[in-house]
Structures are given as C-alpha cells and as structure tokens.
Design a protein around this nucleic acid. Structure first.
Length: 488
RNA sequence: CGGGAUGUAGCUCAGUUCGGUUAGAGUACUGGUCUGGGGGACCAGGGGUCGAAGGUUCAAAUCCUUUCAUCCCGACCA
C-alpha cells in the first residue's frame, strides 16, 4: 500500500506529519517555515472560521481590517510587548528591486531604502491601538468590539505544519472598554466562547485557566487560556484571551471623557485563535488510518460510494438519498469515479476523515438497504433505505458526541494529581498528560521545574478549589493546584 | 545559533566506499485489456540540470571546496 501512515506508537511526530500530508491538509512551501494550506485543509479551516465568526458576531463584535505592516517605532511603545516579539520579526527595509547590474536576476535597489522600517505584524495590538486613539474620545464610543481575520508572521526557529509556522492565519479580537471590570468580563467571555467552540464543534475538551507570569502574553496583565491534551500526552494551548489593562492605552495615549467629564485611559482586551486549531483537531481525534473530522466541522459529512461502480439503478437510489440528506442540511458527496475501485475509495475517505460513508451495490438494492460505515469507530452496518436520512442525521450527532466523550475519557485517564516531585517526574515520564500539583507561586520554582522535567505550568484552572498543600518542588505552602504538562 | 544526519523521478529510496556506456527500482501518473463488496493483475508509455556554484579529471551522482535547504537533538518560542 502506497499511502501508509506511520503508526502513532512507532513515531508520533511522523504520524502527525503523515496525516497532514496524506489527508491533503497542507504542505511545506518554498519558504522555510511557511505552509501551503491545500483545498481540503482549507475547507476545514473555513468551517472553523464560519462558526467562530458567527459566535463573535453573536457576542456583539464587528469585523474590520488593519494593515499587515507596522512602523517599527510602534512596536517599541509598549516595553514588555517589544521584548516578547522583537526576536521573531520579519522586517521590510526596501520597496524596490532592480536588475542586477552584474548579470542576471534582480537585486534590492539600495536607493529604495525606507526611511522607517516596517515590521510584518506578529500581532496587531500596536497598529490597532494607534488607530483607536482617533476612534475613541467619549464614553459613548465604548465599548469598541472589533475582530479581524488576518495572517501574521513570527519568525520561529523550529516550525511544524499547523502547530507552529512562520506565517499563520488567525483571528484577533481587540476591544476597548470604559472600565476594568467590563474589560475583564470581556476577556472571560471570549475564553468561554473559545471553550464552547473547542468542545461543541471541534469535540476537543479543554481546561480553562489563566497563565502564570512567565507564560503570559507580552503586554498583558492576565492571559486566559484554553488547554487541550493531545494523544501523545502533551498539552496544546488552543486559544488565549488577554486582559491588557491600560498598558496599550497608555502606550498609545488612548483616553476618553467619562460621564463625569474626567479623562481616563481605556481598558483593553485582545484574544485569538489560529490555524493551530487544525493541529489540535488532528492530534485529538485521528488514528492510524488517517484523519478523523468531527461532523460539525466536516466540509463533506457523508460520502456515497457505488459498488463496484455507478450504474443507472444505483444512481437513482443515490439521487433519492442525496435529496433527503440535503434537505436536512447534511453535506453529501457521491463519488462516481469509475477509475478507482471501491476498496481504494474506502481507504481514501478514511484517510480524509469523512464521518459517514455509504456503500451501495446490487446486493443492497435487492434487499432495500445501504451499508453505513462510521469513521470514528469504523463500525459497519446495513440500514434500510427507508428512513435513511433520519438514521444518518442521528448518526452524525452520535459521532460528534462520541468523539468528544472519547477525548474526554482520554484526558481523564491522563490527568493525575501528585504530591511529591518523585511522583511528578514518574508520571511525566510514564504516561504524561496533565498533572495537578501544588506550586509555591514563584517564577524561580516554575523555571526550575521546567529545567528539570521540561514540563511547564499550562494554567491555573479557573475552577481550582482552594486546598492547602505544599509546593511539589520546594515544599512551600500553596493554596491551590495548578496544571503542569509538557507542551507543544 | 551549537551537535548530528540527509539532499538522486510527484513520493520512498538504491547507486557514492573504489570516478568509466544512454542514472535505476518500487510506488504514483497516462493509455489499453481483463477485472470488480476493503488500497486489483497484465501490457505499453511519459517523467531527472543527481540541491546549487566552483574546482580536479580524458571522464564526476561518485573526489575536493564553498554554499543553500530540510530533518532530528538542544537553545528559542502567546
């Protein structure tokens, strides 16, 4: 077999790359660290975008677009922010090419040097807050609730398709508020939106929490995160929502007159999820036969395969089924390719993770049934043609729920509470996953644990109960457990 | 940026040690025949600047120098 996938057991990271490649999701490009998202991969991203965009609008946000280039000077206005991003910025220094005077090809025209260099945005806080200064004068201008869908560039040293690429697609919300409380409420609301999206649509269970000082977004006062667990026991940060305080308002001098005619700095938030979610989707559900896409994100939910190939009788039956499914809003593809054999198609659609596959042949038609195969469990059964659409509608729902439940069970099995550092290391080495442990709250301890084990604090869970304990490393008193894991 | 490895057909790789006709295999692709309920068989065909540049030589995928890229391990990383 030509399209074999490396098994997860054999080499997890190769398995991931095989899926991305063989399910036609993405490929490496001519530019290091940048990827080409292929049509099938993009169709899944589009489904994600569509749903997220709806959720943003339902919570009162509007879309806008800001430029890809940021004047260098903007980036240095917020000290922590520049520290966080300076090392990974692409910089535009010239605006013209010319023919190489020494031969063929083109060279940068030295006379076209820019007065001020432009940074390709690694994130848009600075240019957006520079714009907000003009937009915000009064409390009546607030809150300002804006989102943008864009690409950003971060010159990462080591990249991996979808999980960390030099350029990636994302959305970034940037909101401005009159009060601190309101901004914090917005930050939490968006964390909630992300969590709901991850769980209800991606079928990926997440832990909601806040970041420790060292893991916080550069320029934020608080970073709210959703953390997912991958099948290899490593954590993946799936989305973040930042409470920015008045940091950017002060850096860009964005003030408003409140109802008491007092001039105040604006309170800010920003929040984002990226094409990295594709990586989370792949690594949560897929198996050694290929991608598994939850029905709610599948661009094609049902594929119908004529066995062994299309004929008038089969076509007629398919036409009926297709009409019934479409009436229910289910997306269907009928694969009439005569050159490829059924077995080939079965494997191919499994590779692509299509949730439900129908097989129809002469035998089935004689009995008035159709073969229904579900991708998640790979179970097959014969179902009567009568009422098939209802059955499939229910089946898609079952698959969606089953994927979530399966991921949740996996997470439960890979979540451990530990009280000693010996246990901590032991669990990390044997089964990985999320480790709930006490921590003394200092950055030194956090760093030491990271150096010793490679595990980092993924978050301080929102729902962590108060509990007296001792730091797993130093033995200093602690009030609650935090979540540790090795992370992507 | 350090340590290691690799660049030969779309993909996976052989050939490089020890230089010698026209550079190979599997797979994928194209056409045909037979097939047909889980990645079919056979026949025929197309496809290469051997990563790039320079050098040594009668002769370079093979030797030398430089360079670029990719992968793995570190460092780095919302």
């Amino acid at each position: 077999m030509a399209k074999e996938i490396t098994s997860r057991e054999e080499d997890y990271s190769q398995w991931y790359l095989d899926i991305v490649k063989k399910a036609n999701l993405a490929q490496n490009s001519a530019v290091r660290g940048c990827m080409v998202i292929k049509p099938y991969g993009f169709s899944i991203w589009e489904k994600m975008q569509g749903q997220l965009d709806k959720m943003f609008k339902d919570t009162g946000h509007q879309n806008a677009y800001f430029p890809i280039f940021i004047p260098k000077s903007f980036l240095s206005k917020e000290a922590q922010h520049v520290d966080g991003f300076a090392k990974e910025c692409a910089v535009v220094t010239h605006h013209r090419l010319m023919n190489d005077p020494n031969g063929d090809g083109v060279v940068v025209d030295p006379s076209a040097k820019l007065e001020e260099e432009l940074i390709v945005r690694p994130t848009s806080e600075t240019i957006i807050w520079n714009t907000y200064r003009d937009w915000i004068n009064s409390y009546r201008d607030l809150p300002l609730l804006i989102n943008q869908w864009a690409n950003v560039v971060r010159w990462e040293m080591r990249t991996r398709l979808f999980l960390r690429t030099a350029e990636f697609l994302w959305q970034e919300g940037h909101t401005a508020h009159a009060t601190k409380a309101e901004a914090i409420a917005e930050t939490k609301q968006m964390q909630e939106v992300y969590a709901r999206f991850a769980e209800d649509f991606m079928a990926v269970p997440v832990i909601k929490g806040t970041k420790s000082d060292s893991e916080r977004f550069a320029g934020a006062e608080d970073t709210y995160t959703i953390e997912a667990l991958m099948q290899d026991g490593k954590a993946l940060q799936a989305g973040t929502s930042h409470f920015l305080g008045q940091n950017f308002a002060k850096a860009f001098d964005v003030k408003f007159l409140d109802e008491n005619q007092k001039s105040e700095y604006v309170w800010a938030t920003s929040w984002g999820v990226s094409t990295r979610l594709m990586g989370a989707l792949i690594m949560t559900h897929s198996d050694d036969d290929g991608l598994v896409v939850p029905p709610r994100l599948a661009s094609t939910q049902v594929v119908i395969i004529p066995i062994p190939k299309p004929n008038d009788e089969i076509n007629a039956a398919v036409e009926t089924i297709t009409a019934e499914l479409k009436a229910k809003g289910i997306t269907v593809k009928y694969d009439q390719d005569k050159k490829k054999r059924p077995g080939y198609k079965f494997a191919e659609y499994e590779m692509h993770g299509i949730p439900v596959r129908l097989g129809i042949g002469k035998r089935d038609l004689e009995k008035g049934v159709v073969e229904v195969a579900r991708r998640d469990t790979k179970e097959k059964s014969s179902q009567p043609l009568e009422g098939i659409a209802d059955h499939i509608e229910q089946l898609l729902e079952d698959i969606q729920n089953n994927l979530f439940q399966r991921a949740l069970d996996f997470r439960k099995e890979h979540t451990t509470h530990v009280d000693t550092f010996e246990e901590f290391k032991e669990v990390l080495e044997t089964k990985g996953g999320f480790i709930y442990a006490h921590w003394d709250g200092t950055e030194e301890t956090e760093k030491k644990i990271k150096d010793l084990t490679k595990a980092t604090i993924r978050c301080i869970p929102n729902d962590a109960p108060e509990e007296d304990g001792k730091c797993v490393l130093t033995g200093a008193p602690s009030k609650r457990r935090v979540v540790f894991a090795k992370a992507y």
